[in-house]
């Protein structure tokens, strides 16, 4: 028996996926803007950030409404809770993409540091890939893919640590690099945070399927990395 609830849930699901695609695009644009030092593209992205916030609010309102009107239980409840939680993670990921755009503008025409440039490029590639794959895992309700994706986040954390070490080394070698190196540090940190938020979405995908609340973020687990 198809219920009115199913139609509304399908609509909510589609809206969430659409927001996910938008965030994925924004992250891609942010790293492109940084790698190309494209201040115009970066500013455009910053100017549009409020659209993602509005989508987050609209999705939250819709989930509150559905909880109040349909009083969902079991998998229905888990679907709604997953969207309610994951939508905040996406919004925060988009905030960090906006930070990366700010960094692109701030870097301006300072001298690039090839070793850091290459590491940031690697992080960018992994981050954009992760966010595309988490959406696929969400749409396909694939909790195995979600768990595997959380493992990729470890690589991102390692790169972040490496950039940190290399940046400090560059600063020590030549104080003139200080501002530039600190921007690389920030970008690496932002990309690492985006990876963490993607991992949180993975946790909700696992929850939706199993009802189990799991900790997939290596930075938050008790076991050493």
């Amino acid at each position: 028996m198809r219920r009115l609830f199913d139609d509304e849930l399908a609509e909510l699901d589609a809206d969430f996926t659409e927001m996910g695609m938008l965030v994925s695009e924004v992250v891609q644009q942010a790293v492109d803007a940084f790698m190309n030092r494209d201040a115009v593209a970066a500013q455009k992205l910053i100017d549009h950030d409020h659209e993602i916030n509005q989508r987050e609010i609209a999705l939250e309102q819709k989930t509150f409404e559905m909880i109040a009107l349909y009083q969902p239980v079991t998998t229905d409840l888990r679907e709604i809770v997953t969207i309610l939680k994951a939508v905040s993670e996406l919004e925060r990921a988009a905030d960090h993409a906006r930070n990366v755009a700010h960094s692109a503008i701030k870097f301006g025409s300072k001298q690039k540091i090839p070793v850091l440039e290459q590491l940031i490029g690697e992080m960018s590639q992994i981050t954009t890939q992760m966010i595309r794959e988490v959406l696929a895992a969400y749409v396909n309700k694939d909790d195995h893919a979600a768990r595997e994706l959380a493992e990729v986040d470890r690589k991102l954390d390692q790169l972040n640590h490496q950039i940190r070490a290399d940046s400090y080394q560059q600063m020590r070698m030549d104080p003139a690099f200080e501002t530039g190196a600190s921007i690389y540090l920030n970008v690496a940190q932002d990309l690492s945070r985006i990876g963490d938020y993607v991992t949180n979405v993975c946790e909700w995908i696992v929850y939706r399927k199993s009802g189990q609340i799991v900790e997939l973020n290596p930075a938050n687990s008790d076991s050493p990395n």
Binding site: M1, R3, P72, V73, T74, T75, D76, L77, G211
Partner: peptide, 16 residues
């Protein structure tokens, strides 16, 4: 109400 073992239970309590 959160995680029933049987699909029949789930279908009934979620109004299917």
């Amino acid at each position: 109400f959160m995680n029933p073992a049987e699909k029949q239970t789930e279908d009934y309590i979620s109004g299917r």
